[in-house]
Design a protein around this nucleic acid. Structure first.
Length: 555
RNA sequence: GCGCCUGUAGCUCAGCUGGAUAGAGCAACGGACUUCUAAUCCGUAGGCCACAGGUUCGAAUCCUGUCAGGCGCGCCA
């Protein structure tokens, strides 16, 4: 419909030029948009305003010249000039009817596009160290990363979701030590438990399991060997739990990438060798420094410490090189906002090794404030006292949690209130939207019982010309906007665009539902309305699916 | 000190690749269930879009500065 209007405007501009009412035939970069107010029509264009410079005429005059030259088809009721020079198009209600058919036919693919043109994109998210359970912050990152992946895929990108496992280095050793010390404690040995070890109760559980598997003599083991055994066992167990918790949260990765594998495969050594060959590193104070400041970073960074150990940064450089070698055009990392100081150095490494800056993108997710009934939930990572993602999913459910996490832009901090997320009331947005789906399912099942519809009607509109109510046309207009919102969400990598859209569609539906009955005595009108609400149901489902939220048939 | 994010209704936030009269939800007040699910709807009220300049036909939106809040500035990960 939008393209029809655009063609119409362009044809009119050409005709106006040919007949001499417009001095130039140059086309401006105009927009066709749906105005905010109904009094401003179904569509409007800013053609006249953006042409003012080209035509050397007042926008109002250009607009009138254009309208005079326009051959509007029958589906357009009237065209008028308004405000500073907007041209507003008022459509016949029937112009909107074919869209219902289109939605029913496209079904699960309505809203999909080839916007991404099949470009390969990798989205890496969560990537929490396997040293403890996932917490609320990871939950928001997981919801965002997963939704961004879904949305990009729906918009025509070839998406791969990946989790990077930091399974080498000091933290894993610390994990092993923590378990080992708890194990000694249980075996009756008095030990001091250092401050930099992990203190959560899960460490004691793991120690208990190791002791059970290895037998009571294990406490007398050589310490280095024992810590290695503890570390391996604990990391594997924690990672398995992370996997399970994410699966329960509806997040499934295409690939789990091990940091250790970068060492084992020689990929990391290769990267360091490349850096030397390209003269991107130098030695100073016994350490090896990357010249990241030549590529936009504030200062150079160490990739190999004077003690011979490579840094986390070194692994990350190798990992990101490896990503691009796998053929991804774009690499997106989802990080917590507290890591933003890391962006410039990693971006520098990507650019230094031959990629464009815009091929690497970091989504920074701001922090979550966990509340219960308006009061902050006290948490201390140091003491190992915190609410885990699993706790949240168990308490409020996957759908409510995900919807809440995606309700706001990740650029803003988020207040997550457990009591609100749990409430089955109007405070809780997830039910507001899911309720639309369930309500329509209820109507459809009643219609099926009464033989008002059959299976064929689920892919094809019926008697659509009966849809004449203002609320009906308004609903179709909102449905028409879905593909555009998906594209906007994909272009900006902002899932909350879909959230906002779903809320407005749900609101329009509830309003319609309360004012008009779908199943009425006139079978043709019933058929038309059933087609319309079925289209709404499909779009709600498609939108919720992008956010990883289910669409229930009943509630 | 430097960098990133944020500042819009009493509260939580949309709107930010410039467009017409700045929108939702919550909270407050008043209404709607003999009905396809009231987990809903309708109405009322609520605003120096932090502040000051600039850019232009037009600024909540872009630029500069100021103020306020959050976070980050390791040979840690």
């Amino acid at each position: 419909m939008k393209n029809t209007i655009k063609d119409l405007v362009q044809a009119a501009a050409k005709k106006a030029f040919d007949t001499g009412t417009l001095p130039s035939d140059q086309m401006p970069d105009m927009e066709i948009e749906a105005p905010k107010h109904d009094s401003q029509g179904d569509f409007s264009t800013n053609f006249a305003m953006v042409s003012a410079g080209i035509q050397k005429m007042a926008p109002q005059k250009i607009a009138h010249a254009l309208v005079a030259a326009m051959d509007a088809p029958a589906c357009i009721d009237k065209v008028e000039v308004a405000g500073p020079g907007f041209i507003n198009f008022f459509l016949q209600p029937s112009a909107w009817h074919p869209l219902v058919d289109e939605i029913l036919a496209a079904d699960t693919r309505y809203g999909a596009s080839d916007f991404g043109k099949g470009a390969a994109v990798q989205v890496e998210f969560v990537s929490a160290n396997p040293t403890g359970p996932l917490h609320v912050g990871h939950g928001r990152g997981a919801a965002v990363g997963d939704a961004v992946g879904n949305i990009l895929a729906f918009a025509g990108f070839k998406v791969s979701k990946e989790y990077y496992i930091n399974d080498s280095g000091r933290q894993i050793k610390t994990l092993g030590t923590s378990v080992w010390l708890r194990l000694l404690e249980m075996s009756g040995k008095r030990i001091a438990f250092p401050d930099d070890c992990y203190k959560g109760d899960y460490i004691k559980d793991l120690a208990h399991q190791v002791l059970e598997n290895q037998g009571p003599d294990f406490a007398d083991q050589d310490e280095d060997t024992a810590i290695a055994v503890c570390a391996r066992y604990a990391a594997e167990k924690i990672l398995a739990d992370i996997r399970n918790d994410l699966a329960a949260f509806g997040v499934v990765f295409d690939k789990w990438f091990s940091e250790q594998s970068l060492y084992d495969s020689g990929r990391l050594a290769q990267t360091l060798a490349d850096l030397k060959t390209k003269d991107l590193v130098y030695e100073k104070d016994g350490a090896l420094w990357f010249r990241t400041s030549d590529f936009g970073d504030e200062k150079d960074r160490v990739v190999k410490r004077s003690n011979g150990m490579t840094t986390y940064f070194a692994s990350d450089i190798a990992y990101h090189q490896e990503k691009f070698e796998r053929g991804f055009h774009r690499v997106i990392d989802v990080w917590g906002a507290d890591h933003h100081g890391y962006i410039n150095r990693l971006a520098a490494s990507v650019v230094a090794l031959g990629k464009n800056r815009d091929q690497f993108q970091v989504i920074l997710v701001q922090l979550v404030n966990l509340l219960r009934g308006g009061e902050p939930v006290q948490m201390s990572t140091r003491a190992g006292e915190f609410v885990t993602l699993k706790d949240i999913v168990d308490e409020v459910g996957k759908d409510a949690a995900r919807f809440m996490f995606l309700s706001r832009s990740y650029d803003s901090g988020l207040d997550f209130d457990l009591e609100v997320a749990k409430q089955k009331s109007q405070d809780n947005p997830v039910y507001y939207v899911q309720y639309v789906h369930a309500r329509i399912a209820g109507i459809l099942s009643k219609a099926l019982d009464q033989h008002l519809v059959n299976d064929k009607d689920f892919t094809r509109g019926r008697h659509l010309s009966h849809l004449v109510e203002q609320e009906e046309i308004n609903l179709i207009k909102i449905l028409a906007g879905f593909p555009e919102q998906v594209e906007k969400s994909a272009a900006t990598c902002h899932p909350h665009v879909i959230f906002t859209y779903l809320m407005s569609l749900a609101s329009a539906f509830h309003g319609y539902y309360n004012r008009h009955k779908v199943i009425v005595s006139d079978p043709d009108l019933s058929g038309a309305r059933l087609s319309l609400v079925l289209a709404v149901k499909k779009v709600i489902r498609n939108g919720l699916a992008l956010l990883g939220v289910s669409a229930p048939e009943r509630m």
